[in-house]
Design a protein around this nucleic acid. Structure first.
Lengths: 209, 209
DNA sequence: AAATATACTTAACACTGTTAAGTATCCAAA
DNA sequence: TTTGGATACTTAACAGTGTTAAGTATATTT
């Protein structure tokens, strides 16, 4: 079936064109400028054509959100070679914050915007795979730190949630401008590092006694 | 100048009508249904009249955000009588999470949406007073706990930021549906409590030795 | 009575996501 | 070769959004 194969290829090629255009708009003009009409302009098709390749805008934004996770994965390359789980946890937290602050729009789409989750809702398996994978790595690291007696043993799920909550809270308060009027802009990053250090030093058992 | 006073009163009365209508839409139909035209419909004026009383929609949303902080303050009444700063800190955290989860749209406007901060940006003093007050209370409690030797001494600003970050992170991940596909919906609230307890127990020096 | 200030409205601009209906183009069967 | 149908795409429209310039009554002041 050479013909239907070529058809299929064309289908995925136009899908790629749409996603490329979306990404271009996203990185060059920001989230609010990713509109169906502007995408259509770039790929030189009519706006309605976009709907022949994607169910709705949420599905496009879900794909951008996935690319965000890929970018984050690249950003975290080399982290998984770190043997000491506590040190790895430290670097993971630092990287998470750094990634969020240097890619605020990307982070926003991944962890704040509703659109990608609404796209998942209308899917068959209805799973947030990217999120699961990312949290999984955190859990594994914390489990390992507990097993080795580096931090106090406890509910891994709750502790993971707490640590993720803290770094996400710091990043999202920052990129949604809740720190702007609260403190010197030059101090927010050091302060966030300090907050993370405080948490990780507090749970660290290796330094004590 | 009785006449200009009456004028002024009328001005504030219509402002109140607009805000009442906005709040009505907000609580009955949700954030996405607060539109200038719908507000105008309720108060039985034309949409453009709204702009004679408010600079833009952001200014209206800023006012709703302020009402949110008032609601939160009422929610927290009785907290300030608690003598033990560590216990108070505990209850503050619990209340913060509870408030966020029971008033998600309200919380969203207060701590996630951009609109209120954009309204502040175009103001004269350019200060987030409500945020300052709320964080101030957290700082005071943490300072007190440090002074009394209940928790490890450290940078109050960083610790406050960390704790606020964590509770905000948990609430915002929850109300922006990042936990939905991650765990049993019935377990998220207990899990969040557990995460908070874990943090506060970890920093608690009163139980140790 | 005329001029001016106040309060409000109409109409429009420039957008948004989305859908129903219509039109070419290509491919296969009669 | 011609006809019929699937494929790919477009036009036009719906139902909204925030916002502004310009116009119109009404009321007040000169």
């Amino acid at each position: 079936m050479g013909i239907s194969e070529r058809k299929e290829k064309q289908k995925t090629e136009i899908r790629k064109m749409i996603l490329d255009a979306s990404m271009k708009l996203f990185v060059e003009q920001g989230f609010e400028n990713v509109s169906i009409r502007k995408i259509a302009d770039i790929i030189e098709y009519s706006p309605t054509t976009v709907y022949l390749y994607f169910k709705d805008k949420n599905e496009i934004l879900f794909n951008l959100h996935e690319m965000g996770f890929q970018k984050m994965a690249e950003f975290n390359e080399g982290l998984w070679d770190i043997k000491n789980p506590l040190l790895r946890l430290h670097k993971m937290g630092e990287n998470y914050i750094k990634f969020g602050l240097t890619n605020p729009e990307c982070y926003d789409l991944m962890f704040i915007q509703r659109a990608p989750m609404e796209a998942i809702e209308q899917t068959v398996d209805c799973e947030w795979k990217s999120g699961d994978v990312a949290l999984g790595r955190l859990k594994d690291t914390i489990q390992e730190a507990m097993d080795k007696g580096f931090i106090v043993k406890g509910n891994v799920d709750a502790v993971s949630m707490g640590i993720w909550g803290m770094v996400h809270g710091l990043v999202s308060l920052s990129i949604r401008n809740r720190f702007d009027k609260m403190m010197d802009p030059e101090m927010t990053i050091p302060m966030m590092s300090q907050a993370l250090n405080w948490l990780l030093e507090t749970i660290d058992l290796t330094m004590k006694e």
